[in-house]
Design a protein around this nucleic acid. Structure first.
Lengths: 230, 230
DNA sequence: GATTATTCTCAGGAATCTTCCAGATAGATA
DNA sequence: TATCTATCTGGAAGATTCCTGAGAATAATC
């Protein structure tokens, strides 16, 4: 994906920093804003490609910000961030067009993936490759479908996200800490043993279909997904 | 469908913004107008392909606008927006020719579908494919008829709209929030559980006729309609 | 005005998923 | 080889998500 200009709007500095770092690493240009009024100004001023917008803001709510900018004819796609227990029902009428929303707490990889999905749908992403392909493995992001040598593999949500993270970094060792940070929610409080468990789950599902093991353990370091070359 | 020039006339900014965003995403060019006099001027000036016209306007009523422009020989098709409690007789007399009307509150997908229908009827849309075909499923938009392997399936209005939304995005996961925003009315204030209910209804009607389940649940993500190939 | 159809909510239960634990296994080191 | 450590994996509790039937409220139809 080409570089995008992303505006992150959230009153919690932690969330802003987390998202900024993650999105910058994904190759995007990031702007941040702590409240609604400032966000509106920045949107008008800088015309970002996409806005990550917290619904709960100190001054104007995320919904208010949306209405305001839409009334000015600005069609920038928005990815809403909402608390889980909050308003799962009040999204109606807001995810117009290509918009979407994720619930807090989210995983960083989830955000990056959703941004890609939105940009693909709005057609602003030229090389919209919705398929990740590594050797015999294929992940269709639109359909959320995984195949190995054409055979469909059924994965749970976490299994899917883990595999996507590995497949996005083929032939590269990823430490358990990195995996935990990318795949699990940012407030996850558990041990790294869970990564081992999920790698095990993936192997049990993937290896019977592949000619050689896809996920390789680098003892003392981490894991990597084996690609065709390198 | 090719790109259309649409004029949205409504005094409520919210409605204008909602429709603008939705129609722009559908690939149309959108102009807006807050009242009757301005609308008449814009119609003469810009010659839109279709007009979305609120009946209740602060100055001249939607009917007045219609009479005015028709008297000038402008035959642009009109889609009236009316409040539910307004008498339907009033409207029906005026929806001559290719015109149509929807009651507020409406669902965004309904509007897009009605526009397609009008353009097909008035013959201005060349490649207007009035039949959605996904695998064994066929939806005839003109006749509002659904068949699976040739067998006719009887659907309620909401069931039909849900299926149309799914069938318009085959092999693509749609979240419950997205489904709610596209299929249900924009001021719907209910839970997402209703999407589950209607998916259940659809499955009960469709699956007995199809060789394999059409609607697939992507746990933790949403639903998708399975098409013939990847 | 009565009957039927539809919409929507709710709640129990089923199915699946997440997480942790502990014993088994394999690799590294002395 | 013996020992230590890291990793693997099965099991199980608990949580989450999804499905579906039942019923009330509303709208459409005759």
């Amino acid at each position: 994906m080409e570089s995008l200009k992303v505006l992150v709007v959230d009153d919690e500095p932690n969330i802003r920093d987390l998202l900024s770092a993650s999105l910058r690493f994904a190759g995007h240009q990031v702007l941040t804003s702590p409240n609604g009024t400032d966000a509106i100004a920045k949107i008008i001023d800088t015309q970002p490609d996409i806005v990550l917008l917290d619904v709960m803001l100190p001054d104007i709510s995320g919904f208010g910000v949306t209405k305001k900018i839409r009334s000015m004819g600005i069609e920038t796609p928005i990815l809403f961030l909402t608390a889980r227990d909050e308003t799962e029902d009040k999204v109606t009428g807001l995810t117009v067009g290509g918009d979407d929303y994720v619930t807090k707490p989210f995983s960083l990889d989830e955000i990056v993936a959703r941004i890609s999905a939105i940009m693909r749908r709005t057609g602003k992403d030229s090389d919209g490759h919705s398929v990740i392909r590594v050797g015999e493995l294929e992940m269709n992001e639109d359909a959320h479908e995984v195949t190995v040598k054409g055979e469909v593999v059924d994965l749970s949500p976490t299994e899917y996200q883990l595999l996507r993270y590995l497949a996005s970094n083929p032939n590269r060792v990823l430490t358990k800490a990195q995996i935990l940070d990318h795949v699990w929610e940012y407030d996850f409080n558990g041990e790294m043993g869970i990564v081992e468990s999920y790698v095990s789950y993936l192997r049990k599902k993937l290896d019977p279909l592949s000619t050689e093991p896809l996920i390789v353990t680098k003892r003392g370091v981490g894991y990597l997904l084996k690609g065709p070359k390198g």
